[in-house]
Design a protein around this nucleic acid. Sequence first.
DNA 1: GGCGCGATCAACCATTCGGTTGACGCAGGC
DNA 2: GCCTGCGTCAACCGAATGGTTGATCGCGCC
Lengths: 209, 209
Amino acid sequence: MTDAIRVLIVDDHPVVRDGLRGMLTGDDIEVIGEAGDGDAAVLEALRLEPDVVLMDLRMPGSDGVTATGQLSQRLPSARVLVLTTYDTDADIRRALDAGADGYLLKDAPRDELLRAIRTVAAGRVALAASVAGRVVEHLRGDGDVLSSRELDVLRLVAGGRTNRAIARALDISEATVKTHLVHIFRKLGVADRTAAVTTALERGDITLA
Amino acid sequence: MTDAIRVLIVDDHPVVRDGLRGMLTGDDIEVIGEAGDGDAAVLEALRLEPDVVLMDLRMPGSDGVTATGQLSQRLPSARVLVLTTYDTDADIRRALDAGADGYLLKDAPRDELLRAIRTVAAGRVALAASVAGRVVEHLRGDGDVLSSRELDVLRLVAGGRTNRAIARALDISEATVKTHLVHIFRKLGVADRTAAVTTALERGDITLA
DNA sequence: GGCGCGATCAACCATTCGGTTGACGCAGGC
DNA sequence: GCCTGCGTCAACCGAATGGTTGATCGCGCC
């Protein structure tokens, strides 16, 4: 290894940033900066041109997926390694779609983290074991992706609206809402709206925030 | 200050443990141990007899609330300062009921964390600003606490069961289920089961896990 | 003993929901 | 050009839900 791998840490928790910095510093890795939200992450990355960006997903303000998308467009040289607490299907899918090169969970031990950083720095993809399983599973049964309109409906359902209220909110007829719901039920493998909301929450298709 | 405050760190993420250790070491605080789950936390606390236990809530295995309850019984000398990512009403309520002496969020800056540790070590209560607000709010309107039976029903509702299925599962009549639901709706201030589930999830009364 | 509250149940009703069938226009891919 | 999928809508039906009133029982508390 000729030069140290230059790493930018992105996380909203100072504690985690400190912990990562302590864990990574030394060896063949150099922490060159930190950021506390997605916007700052993009700015810092453009300024510092890191080799690897360690990216948290859930952050106040601009989130990690958005920042990842921006980075893969505006700074393709930077490899993005997502490091998050959550591992829902939708989180993983969105992050990888946005251009992430790796996906690790925060409970990963130190050596796994170091290995993953070296892997993505070398241009390969690093996935946590549990995540890798979901990815192949996702490649198999792909027919259950909710369309954007279906997500609109589902989010309103989660808000407790009746079909009629949803129809008014989306400016469509109640019949259309019901059609969307039937498709949602089939895709999620459930029988009613309440189960649809909870399984969508579990899968990460929608969020309560 | 005669002696350093002896702190035990409890968190399932090695990264966070490292970060906290780095943040706290020095000054008048000494990190004397770490634990990765609730059971280990109790064992380590009994062995090391720390002044303050920094306790995460959501952990694999035995969770932080249970551990807090055990500690307040078996090692009353140890003050428990909860340090978590989440701040739902029910989390806060349960932690304080279990005997926690403080409640901080993980995005707290370093000096706030240090201040809180010194505060609880001195025998006082330390609450994050956002948490304190919820606590007084909770003391005001206390009439909306769901009974345990209502929670049983609500958990099954969240699982997508029909009233009839819930009745069978709990071995009561469908009429009783409906009665419980009406009470739940009133207490949560919602109009239907779906909204009940989402607001209960937001409040932390129930969980998806 | 009386009171309140939680838990249980019944009967009734209007509304809503879930499911089906069938239909149309439109965009994108083969 | 054809087919698929998405989004839109209508009409219909049975089942589930939400709301009401009223009732009984047991427990803890004053």
